[in-house]
């Protein structure tokens, strides 16, 4: 017993080092697995508050570009509105009414955005008090941004599409061949669509949209265009390089999508497990 205590006292610095190192390793490993990085995240009172006051100042510098983006979106929406009066039963309108009844959109402001790490996150200024929860989708006016993975009272953390842990169902716009959207961590402009069956008629320049097979994103939200594609090792599936419509390095305002049927669908799909 004496010897054990002596040993502990002699090596106390080393033991402290090992202890602290393993704690941080534990946090690191947690942050590498989807949906488990709960302890250390910036969606809390302290860091969220710092980012909020920073954004108050920072926001003024981007007013011009933000206005331009809003104008662009307005003109797009107006075009849809005026066209709807002309031909009342076009495909877009069916889609947009569909979106309106099942999905609730909440506007939010981005407080923090990163794109240079391999696992990037955004902080937005809506949280539990705005009835925002986990697994809500986040889009901007141009395309998808990410999925909410953690909420505090006033803030939420969004897993960006530029995160090696993210998996989003997406498909070719012209056909219904779908695959999984991931990111390999290299360029913030290019994401990857994997597991697309090799029967799919892929061509460079094709549009990619969300697939609607998951309960998070509605169908036909724009993602990007194909810039390159090749067969993977098994030769059965394509791996597509996709250039995002969104400039992920410059995101100011986003919309949070809540699927009102989420709980209903998830009880159905877990019923037989």
């Amino acid at each position: 017993m004496q010897q054990i205590i002596n040993f502990l006292i002699r090596n106390k610095t080393f033991l402290l080092f090992v202890l602290l190192f393993s704690i941080s390793l534990f946090f690191t490993i947690q942050s590498h697995s989807y949906h488990r990085s709960k302890f250390i995240n910036s969606a809390n009172f302290l860091t969220g508050g710092v980012y909020a006051s920073l954004n108050n100042i920072d926001g003024y510098f981007n007013l011009r570009t933000e206005n331009e983006i809003l104008l662009e979106e307005n003109s797009l929406l107006k075009a849809v509105l005026y066209n709807s009066e002309v031909n009342a039963v076009s495909k877009e309108i069916l889609d947009s009414t569909h979106v309106a009844s099942h999905y609730k959109l909440t506007p939010a402001e981005v407080y923090k955005n990163s794109y240079s790490a391999t696992n990037n996150y955004l902080i937005i200024n809506k949280g539990q008090q705005d009835s925002i929860g986990e697994d809500f989708g986040v889009i901007s006016s141009k395309g998808i941004v990410g999925i909410i993975d953690n909420t505090s009272n006033g803030y939420s953390r969004v897993i960006s599409v530029l995160n090696t842990n993210i998996r989003v169902n997406a498909k070719l716009k012209k056909t219904n061949h779908f695959g999984t959207l991931t990111w390999n961590g290299n360029s913030p402009k290019i994401v990857q669509l994997i597991d697309v069956p090799n029967q799919a008629p892929v061509a460079i320049g094709d549009s990619i949209v969300t697939g609607g097979l998951s309960t998070i994103f509605p169908k036909n939200i724009p993602v990007g265009t194909v810039v390159d594609f090749k067969l993977d090792e098994t030769e059965n599936y394509f791996t597509l390089d996709i250039e995002l419509y969104n400039d992920m390095t410059n995101i100011g305002h986003v919309y949070i999508i809540e699927n009102k049927d989420f709980s209903e669908i998830s009880t159905l799909s877990t019923a037989d497990e």
Binding site: F17, I23, S24, L25, T28, S37, L46, T47, N119, N120
Partner: peptide, 14 residues
């Protein structure tokens, strides 16, 4: 905490 990176900075610092 600020950069949402798990514990990588802590490990390197220790």
């Amino acid at each position: 905490l600020f950069s949402d990176s798990g514990g990588v900075h802590a490990a390197a610092c220790v």
